[in-house]
Amino acid sequence: MSSRSSTTDASQPITALLVAAAVAIVGLLIVVPLVAVFAEAFAPGVAAWWQALAHDPDTRHAIWLSLTVAPVAVVINTVFGVAAAWLVARFRFPGRSLLISLFDVPFSVSPVVAGLALVLIFGRQGLLGATLAWLDWKVIFSWPGLVLATTFVTLPLVVRELIPVMEAIGPDEEMAAVSLGASGWQMFWRVTLPNIRWALLHGIVLANARAMGEFGAVYVVSGHIAGATDTMPLRVEKLFQEYRQPASMAVASVLAGLALVTLVAKFVIEHRLAAEARDLELARSADGTTHDAPREVA
């Protein structure tokens, strides 16, 4: 009857058209290419696929490097994200909004520019180049550079996830913990962290997916050295350029598989997050809230 039911009714011609368009675009741009990657990777057979992954030392090293660089970047991001979100959600200070905007810079800056910026600072001719050479620390063209670049591009993911959740929960539980005698650490481990755990996990999963797949920034700082600084995405590109398409597709299928795992994890976590948000809503309404509680104030 109402306009509401007609807008949600898929049998209406315009709605049906829009649904068809959405399905076509998602299918054409996402599903078909993803299936094609797997089809192409396994076309020569599972044995050949395994051969391409496990028996090429450079590919093996690339997988190994990705599996170490990404977790290190994610751990840095987690520590930074929790601390920064807590700071921003719990305190009011001059420059707070500017700081929140700065968290987003890695999203708006092209990863290649981020990589170049790191070279400008940590490269041999860079700002810290002389100091690093004296210390005999190699950052650019080495794994620390990869970690820096990966951390940079994934920086907003954890903190952005946590700020709204921490603000919604509010500081009262933390203050209750302190007034009951908890130290800062006890408060964090027993109250703050359990309350944000699903949001944190969500941020970590997204950051990990982004870290594994990062190409641009890593391309610039790594120097693209096979068997030394090539990560999985760089390896895919190199194999492709060398006309070794089956091997390239095999590595690509591992990355795509990771994306699917991420998708499932994300789905499960988002389900949990929605349930917690409902709980929060329920908790608020059950105590009558501040607004609509019956009061007999004169």
Partner: peptide, 16 residues
């Protein structure tokens, strides 16, 4: 944390 004061918050602030 050292004051040994019991505080009951307006919206209870129970650990959810």
């Amino acid at each position: 944390r050292s004051r040994e004061v019991g505080f009951v918050f307006q919206h209870y602030a129970l650990f959810r």
